[in-house]
């Protein structure tokens, strides 16, 4: 573990709204991800994990604290070169692809924005890498299945050859049968390209499969950080972490009753 820190987040705060309706979606989050590592962010819906991710890729400028990626502080707005280093795969492949752009246009757009030449070769190459043949090149998204769409979304993120890939629940909108395919694809690509990843998920099985370390978030705070070995053995330090872990193993009558008691107190 001597690799330098790729992503360094220090007391990150993000809030929405003003006055009485002010909500601290993220309230003082700090973590470090080393180069080549995959870091998981888990927690229940609305705990702020996706909000952290959107701030990291420059989509949400309303944050305070320190974020530095590859040794450079994240600017507001980020410069164009930043987007060649950091890319993101969205949760819903049905919403993240432009309905009127063919696969070719979708993949050509980032190259055009950054003035990168040799587009034909790059497009065919990246399609190959995500397991879509050249036959898909001139199709519209509505002619693709969910899994194929997510492969295209991954190809779009990778065509700029980023060093950091942010994954926002990349499999939760897919069929169970396709989820494993996409996870394996991501694992292979990450290894082949030496990517640093942050994976946001509420599915602990996915996190256990993909990540080296993870952080558990609750109500905008990180309550616990553990490595994947500890997760596999069920060694969680906090009550909330244990609850999340138990909940992910399936429905448990005693556990559910305990949660109800706690909320009634």
């Amino acid at each position: 573990m001597t690799e330098p820190a790729m992503i360094d987040v220090n007391t990150l705060r993000i809030s929405f709204g003003h006055g009485a309706s002010l909500v601290h979606a993220v309230d003082g989050v700090s973590f470090t991800v080393r180069e080549g590592e995959t870091f998981g962010l888990v927690g229940e819906s609305g705990c702020g994990k996706s909000t952290v991710l959107r701030a990291l890729c420059g989509l949400n400028p309303a944050w305070s604290g320190d974020i530095s990626i590859a040794g450079a502080a994240l600017a507001r707005p980020p410069d164009r070169a930043f987007f060649r280093r950091v890319q993101m795969v969205f949760q819903d492949p049905y919403g993240s692809l432009h309905p009127r752009h063919t696969v070719n246009t979708t993949l050509g757009e980032p190259l055009a924005i950054h003035g990168i030449g040799d587009r034909d070769r790059r497009i065919v190459e990246v399609l190959e890498q995500v397991g879509l043949g050249p036959a898909f090149r001139y199709r519209y998204p509505h002619q693709l299945s969910g899994g194929q769409r997510q492969r295209l979304a991954i190809a779009r993120a990778l065509i700029l050859e980023p060093r950091v890939l942010l994954l926002d629940e990349p499999t939760s909108a897919l069929d169970v049968s396709v989820q494993a395919e996409i996870l394996n694809l991501l694992t292979d690509l990450r290894r082949a390209r030496g990517l640093t990843c942050i994976l946001v998920s509420h599915d602990l099985a996915v996190v256990a499969h993909m990540c080296n370390r993870l952080a558990v978030m609750m109500q905008g705070r990180i309550v616990e950080e553990l490595d994947v070995a500890a997760l596999a053995e069920g060694r969680t330090a906090t009550e909330y972490g244990t609850g999340l872990l138990t909940a992910s193993r399936g429905y448990d009558r005693r556990l559910a009753a305990a949660f109800v008691e706690k909320t009634e107190e």
């Binding site: 420059g58 164009r80 987007f83 890319q87 969205f90």
Partner: peptide, 8 residues
């Protein structure tokens, strides 16, 4: 959002 984080 995707095209924004491509730097457009």
């Amino acid at each position: 959002a995707a095209v924004r984080i491509q730097g457009a």
